[in-house]
Design a protein around this nucleic acid. Structure first.
Length: 174
DNA sequence: ACGATGATGAAC
DNA sequence: TTCATCATCGTA
Protein backbone atom coordinates (compact mmCIF):
# COMPACT_ATOMS: atom_id res chain seq x y z
CA UNK A 1 0.00 0.00 0.00
CA UNK A 2 1.38 3.36 -1.06
CA UNK A 3 2.19 5.71 1.80
CA UNK A 4 0.28 8.94 1.33
CA UNK A 5 1.72 12.33 2.05
CA UNK A 6 -0.02 12.50 5.43
CA UNK A 7 2.29 9.74 6.61
CA UNK A 8 5.18 12.19 6.37
CA UNK A 9 3.52 15.00 8.34
CA UNK A 10 5.05 15.00 11.80
CA UNK A 11 8.32 14.84 13.70
CA UNK A 12 11.13 13.71 11.40
CA UNK A 13 12.77 11.90 14.33
CA UNK A 14 9.68 9.75 14.68
CA UNK A 15 9.11 9.23 10.97
CA UNK A 16 12.70 8.36 9.99
CA UNK A 17 12.92 5.07 11.91
CA UNK A 18 9.41 4.19 10.75
CA UNK A 19 10.69 4.15 7.17
CA UNK A 20 12.93 1.19 7.97
CA UNK A 21 11.45 -1.94 6.44
CA UNK A 22 9.29 0.11 4.08
CA UNK A 23 9.59 -0.49 0.35
CA UNK A 24 10.98 2.06 -2.06
CA UNK A 25 9.40 1.57 -5.50
CA UNK A 26 10.48 2.98 -8.83
CA UNK A 27 8.44 2.39 -11.95
CA UNK A 28 10.77 1.24 -14.68
CA UNK A 29 8.93 0.75 -17.93
CA UNK A 30 6.50 -2.12 -17.57
CA UNK A 31 7.95 -3.32 -14.28
CA UNK A 32 8.69 -1.87 -10.88
CA UNK A 33 11.99 -1.87 -9.03
CA UNK A 34 11.36 -2.56 -5.35
CA UNK A 35 13.87 -2.21 -2.54
CA UNK A 36 13.52 -2.56 1.22
CA UNK A 37 14.87 0.44 3.13
CA UNK A 38 17.31 -0.42 5.90
CA UNK A 39 19.21 2.82 6.49
CA UNK A 40 17.98 6.42 6.85
CA UNK A 41 19.02 9.71 8.39
CA UNK A 42 16.91 12.52 9.84
CA UNK A 43 17.61 16.20 9.12
CA UNK A 44 15.66 18.37 11.48
CA UNK A 45 15.07 22.05 10.85
CA UNK A 46 17.16 25.21 10.72
CA UNK A 47 18.69 24.65 14.12
CA UNK A 48 20.22 21.34 12.96
CA UNK A 49 23.62 22.43 11.69
CA UNK A 50 23.95 19.31 9.57
CA UNK A 51 20.70 20.10 7.75
CA UNK A 52 21.00 22.07 4.52
CA UNK A 53 18.25 24.35 5.82
CA UNK A 54 20.53 25.49 8.65
CA UNK A 55 21.49 28.35 6.30
CA UNK A 56 17.85 29.21 5.79
CA UNK A 57 15.73 29.33 2.69
CA UNK A 58 17.71 29.07 -0.55
CA UNK A 59 16.69 27.82 -3.99
CA UNK A 60 18.01 24.41 -3.04
CA UNK A 61 16.40 24.12 0.39
CA UNK A 62 13.06 25.62 -0.60
CA UNK A 63 11.52 22.18 -1.17
CA UNK A 64 12.15 21.21 2.46
CA UNK A 65 9.95 24.11 3.55
CA UNK A 66 7.15 22.79 1.40
CA UNK A 67 4.62 20.02 1.95
CA UNK A 68 5.59 16.63 3.35
CA UNK A 69 5.79 13.63 1.07
CA UNK A 70 7.72 15.39 -1.69
CA UNK A 71 11.17 14.34 -2.84
CA UNK A 72 14.24 16.41 -2.08
CA UNK A 73 17.02 15.45 -4.48
CA UNK A 74 20.41 17.12 -4.79
CA UNK A 75 23.85 16.45 -6.22
CA UNK A 76 26.90 15.94 -4.00
CA UNK A 77 30.55 15.68 -4.94
CA UNK A 78 29.60 16.46 -8.49
CA UNK A 79 28.37 12.94 -9.14
CA UNK A 80 25.94 11.42 -6.63
CA UNK A 81 22.26 12.17 -6.27
CA UNK A 82 20.90 12.01 -2.72
CA UNK A 83 17.29 10.98 -2.28
CA UNK A 84 15.36 12.51 0.61
CA UNK A 85 11.68 12.72 1.45
CA UNK A 86 10.34 15.92 2.99
CA UNK A 87 8.64 15.63 6.37
CA UNK A 88 6.82 17.90 8.80
CA UNK A 89 4.52 20.86 8.51
CA UNK A 90 4.74 23.40 5.71
CA UNK A 91 7.26 26.05 6.77
CA UNK A 92 9.33 23.67 8.92
CA UNK A 93 12.27 22.29 6.91
CA UNK A 94 13.00 18.65 7.64
CA UNK A 95 13.62 15.54 5.58
CA UNK A 96 14.72 11.92 5.73
CA UNK A 97 17.72 10.86 3.66
CA UNK A 98 17.28 7.33 2.33
CA UNK A 99 20.81 6.01 2.70
CA UNK A 100 20.42 2.39 1.78
CA UNK A 101 18.38 -0.72 1.18
CA UNK A 102 19.00 -4.43 1.60
CA UNK A 103 19.46 -4.67 -2.15
CA UNK A 104 21.79 -1.67 -2.62
CA UNK A 105 23.98 0.01 0.01
CA UNK A 106 24.90 3.68 -0.09
CA UNK A 107 22.81 6.70 -1.08
CA UNK A 108 24.73 7.40 -4.29
CA UNK A 109 24.58 3.85 -5.53
CA UNK A 110 20.91 3.63 -4.58
CA UNK A 111 19.97 6.62 -6.74
CA UNK A 112 22.02 5.25 -9.58
CA UNK A 113 20.32 1.86 -9.35
CA UNK A 114 16.87 3.46 -9.36
CA UNK A 115 17.61 6.06 -12.01
CA UNK A 116 16.89 8.93 -9.62
CA UNK A 117 18.14 12.33 -10.69
CA UNK A 118 17.24 16.02 -10.30
CA UNK A 119 14.07 15.58 -12.34
CA UNK A 120 12.47 14.07 -9.22
CA UNK A 121 13.31 17.03 -7.01
CA UNK A 122 10.23 18.64 -5.44
CA UNK A 123 7.89 16.08 -7.02
CA UNK A 124 5.41 14.25 -4.83
CA UNK A 125 6.00 10.65 -3.82
CA UNK A 126 3.26 8.98 -5.86
CA UNK A 127 2.41 6.67 -8.70
CA UNK A 128 2.20 9.67 -11.01
CA UNK A 129 5.82 10.53 -10.30
CA UNK A 130 6.86 6.92 -10.75
CA UNK A 131 8.72 6.93 -7.45
CA UNK A 132 7.03 6.20 -4.14
CA UNK A 133 7.21 4.35 -0.83
CA UNK A 134 4.98 1.45 0.14
CA UNK A 135 4.18 -0.14 3.44
CA UNK A 136 6.48 -3.09 3.90
CA UNK A 137 7.40 -5.04 6.97
CA UNK A 138 6.40 -4.63 10.55
CA UNK A 139 9.68 -4.07 12.33
CA UNK A 140 8.26 -3.25 15.71
CA UNK A 141 8.56 -6.65 17.33
CA UNK A 142 11.54 -8.72 16.38
CA UNK A 143 13.88 -6.38 14.55
CA UNK A 144 16.37 -4.06 16.14
CA UNK A 145 16.72 -0.44 15.13
CA UNK A 146 20.17 0.93 15.82
CA UNK A 147 20.72 4.70 16.08
CA UNK A 148 24.16 6.16 15.35
CA UNK A 149 25.78 9.44 14.34
CA UNK A 150 25.09 10.63 10.81
CA UNK A 151 27.67 10.08 8.09
CA UNK A 152 29.79 12.88 6.66
CA UNK A 153 28.59 15.73 8.85
CA UNK A 154 31.61 16.26 11.11
CA UNK A 155 31.40 19.99 10.45
CA UNK A 156 28.10 20.23 12.34
CA UNK A 157 29.57 20.56 15.85
CA UNK A 158 27.32 19.03 18.50
CA UNK A 159 24.72 18.18 15.87
CA UNK A 160 27.19 15.75 14.29
CA UNK A 161 27.01 13.62 17.42
CA UNK A 162 23.25 13.24 17.58
CA UNK A 163 21.94 9.73 16.89
CA UNK A 164 19.89 10.68 13.84
CA UNK A 165 20.98 7.78 11.63
CA UNK A 166 18.79 4.72 11.89
CA UNK A 167 19.74 1.24 10.74
CA UNK A 168 17.78 -1.96 10.58
CA UNK A 169 19.71 -4.82 12.09
CA UNK A 170 19.18 -8.54 11.75
CA UNK A 171 16.41 -10.08 9.70
CA UNK A 172 12.92 -8.97 8.81
CA UNK A 173 9.75 -10.59 10.03
CA UNK A 174 6.50 -9.78 8.33
C1' DA B 1 44.34 7.83 1.17
C1' DC B 2 42.73 10.26 -2.42
C1' DG B 3 40.84 12.06 -6.70
C1' DA B 4 36.74 12.64 -9.66
C1' DT B 5 33.48 16.28 -10.64
C1' DG B 6 29.86 20.16 -10.54
C1' DA B 7 26.33 22.60 -7.95
C1' DT B 8 25.83 25.60 -4.09
C1' DG B 9 26.20 29.57 -1.20
C1' DA B 10 29.07 33.07 0.77
C1' DA B 11 32.41 36.47 0.15
C1' DC B 12 34.43 39.90 -2.49
C1' DT C 1 33.14 36.32 -10.29
C1' DT C 2 35.78 33.52 -7.61
C1' DC C 3 36.37 30.14 -4.01
C1' DA C 4 35.90 26.59 -0.52
C1' DT C 5 32.91 23.10 0.56
C1' DC C 6 30.52 19.12 0.09
C1' DA C 7 24.51 14.13 3.52
C1' DT C 8 30.00 9.77 -1.87
C1' DC C 9 32.33 6.08 -4.16
C1' DG C 10 35.81 3.55 -6.66
C1' DT C 11 40.47 2.77 -7.03
C1' DA C 12 44.95 2.35 -4.76
Amino acid sequence: MLLKSEFFVGDVLKIAPELLGKVLVKRDGATDIRMVINEVEAYDGESDKACHASRGRTPRTEVMYGPAGHWYVYLVYGMHYMLNIVTGEIGYPSAVLIRGTFEVSGPGRLSKALGVDMSFNSKESSGTTGLWIEDGYNISSSCKVEATERVGVDYADEWAKKPYRFLLKDHLVS
